[in-house]
Amino acid sequence: MVDQQPCADLTGKAVIVTGAGSGIGRAAAREFARAGARVLGVARRLPTLEETADGHPGIAVHAADLRDPDASRQVVEAAVDRWGAVDVLVNNAGATRRMPLAEVTADGVADLFALNVTAPSLLAAAALPHLRATRGMIVNVSSTYGHRPLPGAAHYAASKAALEQLTRSWALELAADGIRVNALAPGPTESQALAAAGLPDDVVEQIKRDEAARIPLGRRGAPEEVAAWIVHLATPATAWVTGQVITVDGGLELT
């Protein structure tokens, strides 16, 4: 594990982090809490959220399936009911799905985009009045494959490309309200995403080895390394940064 120090004092800020049950989302929720923020961690499974919050009293949890059209409103209401505000929305929840063109189905595409594109959009819309009140910010978690090809999983890459374009467009749309919108594009990072995609253990391990071999710095990322950048984008140090997609990938984008 990478030992990161909080990069700023975010005491009293109300933060929503989706996909907080594991990986980058868990690391981000904990890092925000360590920086003094009040965090609502959101994921589908309550037990994993409770693991995230264990030992971190600044983290409250809310179990929800963000593919449900009503879930976004309920998530924002849960944060506002607790703290009366939303300062930061981190759209981290997402799905990875291997879907070669010959195997594409309408349901497969719709399910992928429901979580990777529609859910962040509905969350941002639900949070918007509160973000206007706090002149807050949105951090979207994309992927290095949001702007590079991914044969065999093109629709996953396309969903992340859509999220990056939403980031740029929302940044312009909301700038007059003082709301900043940025994205993080991590490279291959240690998480449960590959296993959650239904791949066998031996396939997952081979993918990890192949990815590490392609990364110039020679390894996959740690969730804490990405989380540190998510938190950094929510601090006053980045107050003049909006509409950016920041890649954190060990140099993979250079290859």
Rank of each mutant, 00 (worst) to 15 (best):
M1Y: 06
T18H: 08
A20I: 05
S22A: 10
R30K: 10
V39K: 03
R44W: 02
R45W: 02
R45D: 07
E51P: 09
A53H: 03
H56C: 12
I59A: 11
A63Y: 10
A64C: 13
R67Q: 15
D68H: 01
P69E: 15
P69V: 14
V75C: 09
A78K: 01
A78E: 11
V80H: 00
D81T: 03
D81V: 04
W83R: 01
V86I: 07
L101K: 00
E103F: 04
V104M: 13
L115C: 09
V117Q: 03
P120D: 15
S121V: 15
L123C: 07
V141I: 07
S142M: 09
G152I: 08
A153G: 07
A154S: 10
Y156N: 05
A161F: 02
A161I: 03
L163E: 13
L163I: 10
L163M: 12
S169F: 07
E173C: 11
G178C: 13
A183E: 08
S191I: 07
L194P: 04
V204Q: 05
Q206M: 06
D210Y: 00
D210T: 01
A213P: 14
A213Q: 11
R219E: 13
V226C: 12
A227H: 01
P236I: 01
T238K: 04
T238M: 14
W240Y: 09
W240Q: 07
I246N: 09
T255A: 03
